[in-house]
Design a protein around this nucleic acid. Structure first.
Length: 923
RNA sequence: GCGCAUGUGGCGUAAUUGGUAGCCGCGCCAGACUUAGGAUCUGGUUCCGUAAGGAGUGGGGGUUCGAGUCCCUUCAUGCGCACCA
């Protein structure tokens, strides 16, 4: 009988659907296991072969866990809000929902063809009001919370109000945008409006004036992770810094917990490191510098407190609020001119120019340790967003300060013994201190690290500053001036103060608009909506939430997707808890994976979820790149020359559709039919074939290298696609899509199939399996079990091939062996396994079978081969009965006829016997 | 510049975790069958050498009886962060 994969796969996919094979319910009698894929954004191009790589891996794991007796939650859904649908809508006027739904349906079809075991009853879409109700709900909770630094958790904002009413800011240690200080009396006489303004400084979701990444081309602000090297990640448009009033999430309050939590999760070290970098903890000191002749005090942050004796000037960021306070009248014109220049430079230009620029403010500050007066400059090499936006400059030991000092001819005082600062600064934190002692503080002779500690101690005692930890992690900017996103559950009162809606009013549904562009007055698209007002008639927020809003808690919703009363019920949350295995790409390292952890921790603080970390184990699948093919046209002709002969001609390489190339050999007829201009093409062949060149490039339409899974499924079947994607190499590795090996995998399935049949008859019998067959099977069970647990799927596929070859070679026909083999294969190739399961006469779905366990007794060798080496060089091998003592193995090795030549009459100095491996004889 | 990975045949990769390097697959070579095919099956395939033998896991050095694996150093590639004070 032929292996008819088309028939088999269609039949079983239908069966699974009809029998709800993959439906999952809470079952307290069984242990749970939660396997999650990062849900896709349904783009118009459909799924390509890169997408399923991670999905297949997680599907195999889900099926394996189910066979092992776990109650496995394995859902799928769509991250449906996004820029491409919106931009398509702007161009065509078509509502983004229409394109989104169309794309989702396409994705769904494509996914089903690959045979995933998703429980589709739990599907979620972030653009569904029933879903985003809970995104809005979480926002309201964040608005109504503040972060208590002493308790290290989020608390209701009412608690803070109580504290203010009784003690003012005294004793309040809360995360805030700006350090405030007032008494209870001062608080109590404030107007409601003023109180609201104060509270906004503490809310976890707050409206704040912050420096934002503004992308004029996209017409929206972007979060830090959506900007890279001064341009937008999507589209690559320039991004500028702009002060705007925007909704923000106080993610920075969670910096330390986000950092600490990394130690408790099973993620790759590199991903954790990426997050640590992004959070960017640095320990240092905040120091106060008085401005001479004024009451103004400048706070600066430094990690090099030890270099205080080498501070020869100070620098403020151009955006610093102190700039206007410090500028003296005679310097005002110059400073304003400089500020104006800086303002018109985008961040990108600043980065590219890397030219030293700056201006003297006219003011002098007093070094709190030496008492010396030093000039205060303004320069854009100091960032407004980090630390306090002001620095103490130590040109001898900081390369940026050095460049600045050289440019403005400022003094450079070396502080470390032997450091040559005539050409460049000495930035390393090592060496002995010099020039660093006075009556207040003596650092000379100390090591840099000791000096840092001593200076910090002094700063505290002398009251000139404090020890401080700084984080690079910024609050997340949460407003987007777009249409296709979650509306904020926020309205504005007559004083333009924001208020959140009541939870009962959720979901606040996205309104219809006539166009998806900003209004003529520059308001976001929601400004076009009619009656965009709250129940009380007040105007609603016009911005929508960013893409990461909907993806931050979606894993919780899958646990209880139809619940209208809660994001997730207590029961569901306590049963499913968190994601045991999360599979997805590294590109979300500093976006989604930070925001989700933050969101989860926030809900954890409020008691809505029971686990502090959302994703226990995370596996990063690599990207699948495109493998483009080229043909070589001889210039000014319609003749194409084969790859290895192209050097003899003057040729132009042309991308050719990879779908008409097989194993780098061009299908000439299909090529002629591909484009009218090639209809009369002529070819110069090598060995009768036209061989194409290739290159590894991004998978894209323009390079004709996009391979979509449907084509592979059509040609080889889903099981071959699944096995082949796994066979390609380790799952976490990026690799080009290359069909060169797919035939081998397909051949394996055909060979397996043919083992079952002789002609059209089942050739398997109920006979007892031979010892050899049992050994082959149990080797496989052991290997595959180990491999799945370690996500080493490529070696599993190899193991299956070896086993099938062995069973074929020994002509094993025992049903019991094949039954176990089919169960082992089921996670990898579910369709053929279901079919063979029934061919073997079993009932029900193979999904409900039991994972076989291996028995060591079949794996014991009767005889063992030892390699015998002399002084580490292998010379011959011996075969001895298994279980021999070391001494007997030694004897056997020495008495072997081949040994004499190497021993040559000498007495061995030492003999090392490695069990089942090697006998090494040292002469 | 800092940090993290990775480097093995013509190609994708494997190596029981310090124990005979190259499993499995692709490709290639030879053969069988054949209705001549992009089907199937069998055997071979790291390199040099007719062979005996020798070399060999990016390069150099080290530890060890023994190193793809551990240590030092260097080169190359990929990724992350980057005027972060």
């Amino acid at each position: 009988m032929e292996y008819n994969f088309k028939d088999i796969e269609q039949r079983w996919q239908k069966y699974w659907k009809e029998h709800n094979t993959y439906k999952v319910e809470i079952d307290e009698s069984r242990p749970k296991y939660y396997v999650l894929d990062m849900f896709p954004y349904p783009s118009g191009a459909g799924l390509h072969v890169g997408h399923p790589l991670g999905y297949i891996a997680s599907d195999i794991y889900s099926r394996y866990k189910r066979l092992c007796g776990y109650n496995v939650l394995h859902p799928m859904g769509y991250d449906a809000y996004g820029l491409p649908a919106e931009q398509y809508a702007i161009q065509t006027g078509q509502h983004p929902e229409i394109t989104t739904v169309r794309n989702i349906n396409r994705y769904h079809d494509q996914l089903d063809k690959i045979g995933f075991c998703y429980d589709w009853d739990r599907e979620i879409r972030t653009c569904d009001p029933k879903y985003y109700k809970w995104t809005q709900w979480a926002f309201i909770k964040m608005f109504n919370s503040y972060y208590d630094n002493d308790l290290q958790r989020a608390c209701p904002i009412e608690k803070l109000v109580e504290k203010f009413a009784s003690n003012g800011t005294d004793g309040v240690n809360a995360a805030c945008s700006e350090q405030l200080s007032f008494t209870a009396d001062e608080w109590n006489v404030k107007s409601d409006n003023d109180k609201e303004n104060v509270l906004m400084n503490y809310r976890i979701a707050y409206l704040g004036n912050t420096m934002v990444n503004w992308c004029p081309k996209l017409g929206t602000v972007l979060a830090n992770d959506e900007v890279s090297e001064g341009v937008s990640v999507r589209g690559g448009y320039p991004v500028e810094q702009k002060m705007m009033r925007q909704w923000c999430l106080r993610v920075s309050a969670y910096s330390q917990r986000l950092l600490d939590g990394l130690d408790s999760v099973d993620w790759t070290e590199s991903l954790k490191e990426t997050q640590r970098n992004w959070i960017g903890r640095s320990e240092g000191a905040e120091m106060k510098f008085k401005v001479a002749g004024t009451d103004i005090v400048l706070d600066i942050f430094t990690t090099r407190a030890d270099t205080i004796f080498g501070v020869t000037f100070m620098v403020l960021a151009p955006e610093s609020e102190y700039v206007s306070l410090l500028v003296t009248d005679d310097r005002r014109a110059d400073v304003e001119k400089y500020l104006d220049e800086v303002k018109h430079k985008t961040e990108r230009e600043r980065l590219i120019e890397k030219q030293v620029s700056g201006v003297f403010s006219g003011s002098y500050a007093i070094n709190p340790v030496t008492g010396k007066e030093i000039p205060v400059y303004i320069s854009d090499y100091v960032l407004a967003g980090y630390g306090t936006g002001a620095i103490m400059a130590v040109p001898a030991h900081d390369s940026r300060d050095y460049a600045f000092a050289r440019h403005f001819d400022l003094p450079i005082i070396p502080l470390i013994e032997g450091a040559d600062v005539s050409e460049e600064s000495f930035d390393a934190k090592e060496g002995k201190m010099i020039n660093s002692s006075n009556e207040n503080l003596q650092l000379d002779g100390l090591d840099v690290k000791e000096a840092i500690a001593k200076t910090k101690e002094y700063i505290k005692q002398a009251g000139i500053g404090r020890v401080k930890v700084n984080y690079r992690l910024r609050d997340a900017i949460f407003s987007r001036q777009r249409y296709w996103g979650e509306p904020f559950p926020v309205y504005y009162d007559e004083h333009n103060m924001p208020h959140v809606l009541d939870e009962e009013e959720l979901p606040l549904e996205l309104p219809e608009v006539d166009k998806f562009l900003p209004t003529e007055t520059g308001e976001p698209p929601l400004g076009r909506a009619k009656n965009w007002v709250a129940k009380n008639g007040r105007p609603l927020e016009l911005c929508t939430m960013p893409g990461f809003a909907g993806s931050s808690a979606y894993y919780l919703r899958y646990m209880d997707p139809h619940n209208d009363n809660a994001l997730v019920s207590k029961q569901a949350d306590e049963y499913w808890r968190n994601v045991d295995l999360y599979v997805g790409g590294t590109e979300h390292a500093t976006g989604h994976l930070i925001y989700s952890r933050f969101w989860n921790k926030f809900l954890y603080d409020l008691g809505y979820v029971c686990e502090p970390e959302p994703f226990k184990k995370l596996v990063n699948q690599g990207m699948i790149q495109g493998r483009s093919n080229f043909v070589y046209r001889i210039k000014d002709t319609n003749t194409f020359v084969s790859y290895n002969l192209r050097k003899e001609y003057d040729v132009t390489p042309i991308h050719v559709d990879v779908n008409i190339v097989n194993n780098d050999v061009l299908d000439l007829d299909k090529f002629k039919a591909w484009r009218p201009e090639y209809a009369n093409a002529e070819f110069i062949l090598e060995n009768g074939k036209y061989v194409c060149g290739y290159a590894i490039e991004k998978m894209s339409k323009s390079m004709y290298n996009v391979v979509n899974p449907d084509d592979i499924v059509e040609r080889y079947g889903a099981d071959t696609l699944r096995l082949y994607e796994m066979f390609l190499g380790p799952i976490e590795q990026s690799k080009p899509w290359d069909t060169n090996g797919i035939d081998g995998v397909h051949r394996f399935l055909k060979r397996l199939w043919s083992l079952f049949f002789k002609g059209d008859e089942l050739q398997l019998t109920d006979t007892e399996p031979s010892a050899e067959a049992m050994k082959s099977l149990h080797k496989l069970i052991k290997k595959v079990t180990f491999d799945i647990e370690h996500f080493s799927y490529n070696t599993s596929v190899s193991a299956f091939m070896i086993c099938v070859n062995e069973l074929n070679a020994i002509k094993c026909t025992s049903k019991s062996v094949y039954k176990d083999l089919v169960v082992l294969l089921a996670p990898f190739a579910p369709h053929i396994s279901e079919e063979l399961w029934h061919v073997l006469g079993e009932e029900g779905s193979v999904c409900d079978a039991k994972w076989p366990e291996y028995d060591e007794k079949y794996l014991v060798e009767s005889s063992v081969k030892y390699a015998v080496s002399f002084n580490g060089k292998t010379r011959f091998s011996i075969e001895v009965p298994a279980g021999m003592s070391k001494e007997d193995v030694e004897k056997a090795a020495l008495s072997d006829a081949a040994a004499e030549k190497w021993i040559a009459g000498k007495t061995p100095k030492k003999i090392i016997v490695v069990p089942n491996k090697i006998v090494n004889i040292v002469i």
